[in-house]
């Protein structure tokens, strides 16, 4: 009786086209926010309808990176939710300090703001020289931006406030160079970061991590994909390893949530439970 509206059908066909032609599967992305990003993409690329975008992305491979970049959500800030970073500094890093070598996986690194926040945290805790950070994203465009570590100078004030609220020991300005209207992260902070393309939808375990940060990524996934990724994290963590999600994420509907014990339920910091 209820006929789906034409945009709903177009969206379905767009998702099918990306999967069949390009191997990117957005079928398990939460539709409400995905639909918004697709509509924003229409404006950015100059298409009237999703149908038109589908036709173009089928034929024009050069358009794909732009589409993928548009469908990922690269918005973050340094030390977003300072209380989370303070908690990591005060309670998680001291436990990680007992390992001779520390692996941290940031899944969904976007433009890198959190990678560098983490590197600063580790540097100030005296742990950075024995830490390897793997920063991954499924968008090559995002990874390239993250590697550059260049951010608008107008963001610097917010980042600095966050850094201090997170318990930063110095001044954030010690870690970047300001030039014109840009700030560039100090190259020394990049020394132990490896950037790589990894798609949580289809790629598997690739490191043994002591801590995984994946903040505000699973909010774009359906329950079943969320569960799949939590299983991937479970399988990637060392015994008693830590997982840090976004502060408003809800994993109550995922079966794999039983593998994690919240060490701070409000800040969504979890530890792998004994198997």
């Amino acid at each position: 009786m209820a006929r789906p509206d034409v945009e709903e059908v177009e969206l379905e066909l767009f998702v099918r086209a990306l999967k069949l032609r390009h191997g990117y599967d957005f079928g398990e992305y939460a539709r409400a926010s995905f639909r918004r990003r697709v509509n924003a993409l229409l404006q950015g690329i100059g298409c009237e309808t999703i149908g038109e975008l589908t036709a173009r992305v089928l034929r024009d491979d050069a358009l794909l990176p732009k589409v993928i970049a548009g469908l990922s959500v690269p918005v973050s800030e340094m030390f977003r939710d300072p209380a989370v970073f303070r908690k990591l500094r005060d309670e998680v890093l001291p436990l990680l300090a007992s390992y001779p070598h520390i692996n941290i996986w940031q899944a969904g690194c976007a433009f890198g703001q959190e990678v560098y926040s983490l590197a600063i945290l580790l540097e100030e805790a005296g742990l950075y020289d024995r830490t390897q950070i793997y920063a991954t994203d499924f968008s090559d465009a995002a990874i390239a931006r993250a590697q550059e570590g260049i951010f608008p100078a107008r963001e610097a004030r917010l980042y600095s406030e966050n850094y201090l609220a997170a318990g930063g020991a110095h001044s954030l300005a010690d870690y970047y160079h300001a030039r014109y209207d840009l700030i560039t992260i100090d190259a020394a902070l990049k020394r132990n970061v490896t950037f790589a393309n990894h798609n949580l939808v289809c790629d598997g375990v690739f490191c043994e991590a002591h801590l995984i940060l994946c903040r505000n990524v699973l909010i774009y996934f359906t329950d079943s994909l969320q569960n799949h990724v939590l299983e991937l994290f479970r399988d990637s963590l060392v015994r008693s390893g830590f997982l840090c999600l976004g502060t408003r994420e809800n994993i109550a509907f995922a079966r794999a949530a039983q593998n994690f014990r919240a060490i701070d339920p409000r800040l969504r910091i979890f530890q792998l439970a004994q198997r």
């Binding site: 939460a30 539709r31 409400a32 926010s33 918004r36 973050s76 909010i219 408003r248």
Partner: peptide, 21 residues
């Protein structure tokens, strides 16, 4: 609605959040 996120409603009638711009 929580602050710092967009609030949306899914077709399944459940709340969804987005940290988009």
């Amino acid at each position: 609605a929580p602050s710092g996120y967009h609030l949306l409603l899914g077709r399944d009638g459940r709340f969804a959040l987005s940290a988009e711009a």
